[in-house]
Design a protein around this nucleic acid. Sequence first.
DNA 1: CTCTATATATCGAGT
DNA 2: ACTCGATGTATAGAG
Lengths: 223, 223
Amino acid sequence: MRLIVARCEVRYTGRLDALLPEALRLIVIKSDGSVMVHADHGGFKPSNWMVAPTTIEESAEHIVVRKFAGKEEDRLDIRVVEVVSDVTHDMGEAAALEKDGVEAHLQELLADQPHWCGEGFRLVRREWPTDIGPVDLMCRDEEDGWIAVEIKRVGTIDAVEQLTRYLERIRLDPAMDVCRGVLAAQSIKPQARVLAEARGIACVEVDLAVLRGEREPDLTLFG
Amino acid sequence: MRLIVARCEVRYTGRLDALLPEALRLIVIKSDGSVMVHADHGGFKPSNWMVAPTTIEESAEHIVVRKFAGKEEDRLDIRVVEVVSDVTHDMGEAAALEKDGVEAHLQELLADQPHWCGEGFRLVRREWPTDIGPVDLMCRDEEDGWIAVEIKRVGTIDAVEQLTRYLERIRLDPAMDVCRGVLAAQSIKPQARVLAEARGIACVEVDLAVLRGEREPDLTLFG
DNA sequence: CTCTATATATCGAGT
DNA sequence: ACTCGATGTATAGAG
């Protein structure tokens, strides 16, 4: 990994054109060819960048980073005016990141405890297939009525649209023509709730801590 | 801006839990409080990070970065095992990034040359308001029929959904109850095209180079 | 402040 | 290769 602190002007040409006027910035060149240009403020997103694979050419005053995405060429042109620091560090492999708490986990918890999605719900299957994609959970209630459940961390209008599309498809099957819809999320945006209710889709806010705290791993309704 | 190259283990707790096992990495602390942890590979996204505003505490072996987002606390805990390098650079303000070529520009070009969206189209106004958001262009054709145009760089299913929502609203007005819809984009995904055509929405692929090359800046149909 | 729409989104999984 | 869905999305803009 090479770290260059330099006064530079940066031009990107590709999917759009962008110009960074001359200023003092950090240039990071990773060993896989990824290049980032960072200002001393503004979050984790670089002011300009190019991800591997790239080809890098360097001359006295220029670093040119190129990428061939399809037929078009992406190009990052760094004009280096003044170098303050230029160091290279040899790093080994960094082990991968492990995550927990994302939607998949939420789906797992709700699959084990579908009653949080609605009174008396029992799971039929996860990732119920339709011809435009899988519904997160398919359940049945105490009267054997079908319910399609869409799970999100944040329930937005898009989630309501998505579930609506699934319901359209599912209801084409005469045996499921009155299938209900439930949107389950850790939080649901007010406008999404309005749209959902206008379409007869129920909204349920679920609490991850509650799901975890009351979890009974042994309980499997449909093994 | 402070640049630390160190062997470290990083733990993030907040919206999810993540753990980076011990390895050699770059830690960047920007002067606005943003913190990034980068491995020597893997694009511009940090392995872990926290954006400003933050509070940073440092002891012999730990750097703890905290953020108070609502009631929950986000926390980045960096256990530093071995420091290879630790330098600080004073940087001034970096001038802002200027962009060109995004959707706004496409909208500008099509507003000046609405005939690319359909034969005989003339512009009525940009950003036509509805109660759920603005339509990019509202046009009329040679028979004075209304057409709502949604502009995207890439036309996806979401774009079709968005335009469908707008059309629902627009058609509530008896004077516009047969308003047509056009999706204009540099490229349109096949599935989006299928959905659009199933809903009677026309699809138009536009070429940015053509729009620019044949542009007549003086021509304003509706000043 | 919330909410909507955009992004050089990035990234991964499935087809 | 392409599409689709998730992201600690982040970010800008409007109301």
